[in-house]
């Protein structure tokens, strides 16, 4: 079980800020494919992952990273702080 979080326009497109996901995905990219296969709104939200960033357990990571031992995955657009 992994906690998946969405922020900014990704959260709006998917329609929820977080959810628990039962998954055997090996990498972040595998998880994205599983989510995209679920429903149209996920497929649209994740259509272009180059426009997205990912954090694993609150550390910036990348889509090729393994999910073993990870409890929290967050997806979001490039950050606009400052």
């Amino acid at each position: 079980m992994i906690e998946v979080l969405y922020f900014a326009w990704l959260r709006e497109r998917i329609g929820l800020p977080r959810e628990r996901v039962e998954t055997d995905a090996v990498t972040v990219a595998d998880l994205v494919e599983e989510l995209k296969a679920r429903e149209e709104r996920y497929a649209l939200a994740f259509a272009d992952v180059t426009a997205l960033r990912v954090a694993l357990d609150q550390e910036l990571s990348d889509f090729a990273a393994p999910l073993a031992g990870v409890r929290e995955v967050a997806f979001f657009p490039p950050m606009t702080g400052g």
Partner: peptide
Amino acid sequence: LKSRAPFWKKEFGPDGAEWVAAKDED
């Protein structure tokens, strides 16, 4: 802080709201 801290800005105006896009310069 501009591009490595997890903040996202959304601007609200008379025509609605829009997420601020990250700039390549940043």
